[in-house]
Write a protein that binds this DNA or RNA. Structure first.
Lengths: 343, 343
DNA sequence: CTGTTAGCGCATTCAG
DNA sequence: CTGAATGCGCTAACAG
């Protein structure tokens, strides 16, 4: 590895001090324009690249935002990361991405790793297994700004007030359910994720509310909980078919299982939406696109990611009071995409 | 931000020198076990976290692998990143992810940024606009190891020998085409990406080869080129419908356009696969899953990502000769998933 | 406006 | 086996 040029190399050649060069390079007003010019010219000529490692060490800022998501390859998260990257790049931050694989253990390890790397802030969506924030204690102690998004802590006040960015899950779920009811559905089977996870909790609440509003009794045997793996969608569909009477509609609080349920039902000769109407949360544009029979709730990870970065850079750069008085919640709007009505 | 414990804090409390502590912490054989033990104990007690920034600066290694992909949110790339993250984490590396947005300009900027950050190596899939490697010159000069994957340079020898990891696009494309031919298809319309991109070039070659092998004439008016946006799939489908005679089959070298073409054709009353058979490259499991009429070529980004990391860490840690004598190509196997035959 | 001085936290000589 | 000394490249007081 060839030795790279440093500010000292520049300084020597120009008979200046390295501190002046440093200032000039960063456009300090303490340096006169002419000096800046000659420094910059030489920098370009010698192909000088500032060494971030050194400047970070010195200024005790890593210029890096840590990001933890359950799985990078899930579409909602990869779009969130895409938005995070875009916005962070704009603001001059790097991002350090980790995946928890939806495991509490990995999430802890990730936090540890980010701590080693002295990230300036953390943007995180919690794993499916996370029930408390005990593994965040060091982050809290070091006062690292944290922004939770999508899957956020449900009762964090016991630790400290926090910032959350969420989708309007309850409201949109209410709307989606109401949409089914308006089409004459009464028996609506529901496939939920773990109730300890904010989004599934909220979606279920919206469903309950809509039924209650329409004075439709809640049938507990129509509600299933799972960890939302592909096979859970199939299991759910099987259970549906075992009911004495088919439901009017199926509502899946998750996109993967919505599709696998649908596929299984179709393979069993059920016509959708003629026999059973279906609705599903969808962050997969492809799936939504390729199956126009599915009414979907679309949520944009990209936007959420951008907002998260804006928020965290505000915190990092002290444009916002770090010591929050209470939980701060930012809510993004989802869209209900109704397809079958147009056919 | 509370001050964190350093090796000096440990050293002082134990009446040792910081250098000894440094060695002990990293398990140097130069330190006796007992010393290591007491150092480690105190480190845990005081919750010591090594400052990577400092150690990186000192050792002139960032412990970071740079990754550039066109778009994080495209499924093939997010799965590749997922594999990269997993493998890099295992090996103790961080990853620094950038997206080129399929633009040459951004790709250059990304490279610059990674250079600033002194990444130890780079894993990259080229943008749609990239025709040459002129923007890599500094990386080459600094002898940063580089591994190209998926969309790789087609003629890089003018710069220097390089390492590429690719899918067996030509072979699998040959197989896919042959599969259509075996089903009696002769007029097979083809939707290609830019010919300057390795994968599209290879896929088209496989298609040509299969036709030639079966002595089927190549009809140039059945071959379309585009930049593979969603709308291009629709445009392509429109052109298909304008032909005097419908083709027997449609082959899309890209997954997004395969789906949008299919959707448009279906909306026009074309039955698939009865009227027209279809085949598409697919890295979207959801799309493949939700449309069982599409024969797909599946390629695993995860595996490719892992291999890329193995390769680059070998290079970084000098387990492999840096000065390559010639291009090195690693080929991964794709899978042809045939669905319609089973119905 | 510019130079001097002094580290950031760690790793690596070189002595003992 | 351990300690003392040095510096990675850059920034930030403090002087001038």
């Amino acid at each position: 590895m060839k030795k790279r040029t440093t500010i000292h190399d520049l300084a020597k050649q120009l008979s200046l001090d390295s501190s002046t060069v440093s200032r000039a390079l960063r456009g300090s007003p303490l340096v006169k324009q002419k000096t800046k010019d000659i420094v910059n010219d030489l920098a370009i000529k010698l192909n000088y690249k500032p060494n971030r490692l050194a400047s970070n060490l010195r200024s005790n800022k890593s210029n890096t935002i840590g990001v933890i998501v359950p799985r990078i390859s899930r579409h909602f998260f990869s779009s969130a990361i895409s938005g995070i990257e875009e916005e962070a790049y704009k603001k001059g931050y790097n991002i350090l991405i980790c995946q928890s694989q939806d495991k509490f253990k990995y999430e802890s390890k990730n936090i540890d790793n980010l701590l080693h790397n002295r990230v300036d802030g953390l943007i995180i969506s919690l794993s499916l297994e996370t029930r408390d924030l005990s593994h965040f204690s060091e982050l809290f102690e070091s006062e690292t700004p944290i922004v939770f998004f999508d899957r956020v802590p449900m009762n964090a006040l016991e630790y400290r007030p926090i910032i959350k960015i969420v989708n309007d899950d309850e409201a949109i779920s209410y709307n989606a359910t109401t949409h089914l009811i308006n089409q004459g559905c009464e028996r609506i089977a529901y496939h939920s994720g773990p109730d300890s996870i904010s989004i599934y909790n909220a979606r279920l609440k919206g469903y309950y509310k809509a039924l209650k509003k329409a004075s439709i009794p809640i049938l507990k045997n129509m509600i299933f909980y799972s960890n939302l793996m592909l096979k859970d969608g199939v299991d759910f569909a099987r259970k549906i078919l075992e009911l004495k009477k088919l439901p009017d509609a199926i509502y899946s609080a998750n996109d993967t299982t919505a599709l696998s349920s649908m596929q299984y039902l179709k393979s069993q000769g059920i016509r959708i939406p003629q026999d059973i109407k279906m609705i599903g949360f969808s962050d997969e544009p492809a799936s939504a696109m390729s199956d126009p029979t599915l009414t979907t709730v679309d949520q944009s990870g990209v936007e959420m990611g951008k907002v998260a970065v804006k928020k965290i850079t505000d915190l990092i750069e002290n444009r916002e009071e770090m010591q929050l008085q209470s939980n701060q919640i930012i809510t993004m709007n989802s869209t209900l995409i109704i397809r079958e009505s147009s056919r």
